[in-house]
Every structure is written in C-alpha cells, then in structure tokens.
Design a protein around this nucleic acid. Structure first.
Length: 191
DNA sequence: AGTTCGATCGCCT
DNA sequence: GGCGATCGAACTG
C-alpha cells in the first residue's frame, strides 16, 4: 500500500499541483480511483474561485494549511471535493472532477444506482464523491490522517495532459485551469 | 430577514 | 439541448 502524498506536495503553486495530481489515486476505504480530471482554483486573480471575496465559514478550509480537503454542497444536491494547496492564508484548491475506478467498484455501483457502465461511476465531481462515499462530514479533513487519502501508486505521468477552460463557471471563463488526461474514457466530458 | 444563485446530475423531449 | 431538484452560504438592505 502506497504512502499518502506528503504535505509538501500540496504546498506549491496550485497550477503546478493540479496537473501533478493526474494519475495519482484518491482512496476512501476499499474504494479508489485514478485521478483523470482536475481544475485549479486560485487564491488571487481568479473570480471563479470560492475564495474570491476572502475567507467565510464555508471556504475556511481553502485558507487553511495545504493537504486538507475542502468539501462543499452544490445546487443543494451534490458534494464536490477539493484538495487545498499553497500555504495557510492563501485561498487555493484543486477540484477533483473525474476518476477512473480502481477498487471497490461493486460498492460504487451500490451508491450510484443510475450508473450502467464503470465509466459512469466517477465521471463528474458530484458522481465521484457519491461513488467514494465522500460528503460534508469530510470537509476540512487532513489528507495525511485519513480516512480519505491521495496516494502515488507509481502509475507514471500521463502521456498527454490537456489544458482547457473550466466547466460550469460564469466568471473567469477564459482561464485554462482544467487539466485532463487526454482521451481518457472517464472524463466528465470530451475535450 | 429576505433573496439570490451556484465549480451538478439525471430525466425529459 | 433544456430544465427541475433542493440546500445553505453569502449578499443586500
């Protein structure tokens, strides 16, 4: 079993951490998946970031130390999971948008009854939190303490990393802060 | 205290 | 391709 990524991995510029998270593995209990799509949300000069107007009760984890989870409820329905980056005081994070399932697939189907194919289990930020059993109770969690971890399973660096505009936002729409493993079938959408 | 609206998903046509 | 679900945080006044 691989070790969790060290704190220092996350204590770097968010635009460096985001692509480096591709092909790392998100783990919760028996369930895990390879990260194939992420988006960076910066602490400055990013009007799409939840941190844009300074810390609030909801976004406090974004301004906390790196290597922690920031989980929030979107549209009153789905949870989105981020990993916090950069030193405490900087409101930055990386949103995990899609995974390629590795283990615990049967359990994922149990929590994602609408999924017909394996590639539909984790191909979106709300889908993957449901599939892995991550919710608001994990907000602020230290990734080095668990029960949620990001580990390096030595899967290597993707051959082709693509940068593109982020999905579903209305501000700063031109910033190319979405990173995908090009051509992976588990992406939230083609690009 | 009231209102707005969102880093989505799944079902409908 | 369009839209309703369903909640709470954040903003307005």
């Amino acid at each position: 079993m691989a070790e969790p990524l060290p704190r220092g991995f996350f204590d770097r510029p968010t635009l460096e951490v985001a692509p480096d998270l591709l092909n790392k593995v998100l783990v919760h209990g028996e369930r895990s998946g390879r990260i194939v799509e992420v988006e960076a949300y910066l602490g400055t000069d990013d009007e799409a970031s939840h941190s844009r107007n300074g810390p609030t009760p909801r976004t406090a984890p974004m301004f906390g130390p790196p290597g922690h989870l920031y989980v929030y409820l979107i549209y009153g329905v789905h949870h989105c999971a981020n990993v916090v980056t950069e030193p405490a005081g900087v409101g930055a994070a990386v949103l995990i948008r899609a995974l390629a399932p590795i283990s615990g697939v049967d359990a994922m189907y149990g929590d994602r009854p609408t999924a017909r194919r394996e590639r539909d289990l984790c191909n979106g930020p709300g889908k993957l939190t449901r599939a892995l059993g991550i919710d608001g109770g994990h907000d602020g969690l230290d990734l080095s303490a668990g029960p949620v971890f990001v580990v390096d399973d030595d899967l290597g660096v993707p051959d082709d990393i693509r940068r593109s505009p982020r999905i579903g936002i209305t501000r700063s729409v031109d910033l190319p802060y979405r990173y995908t493993v090009a051509g992976d079938p588990n992406l939230s959408r083609r690009s």
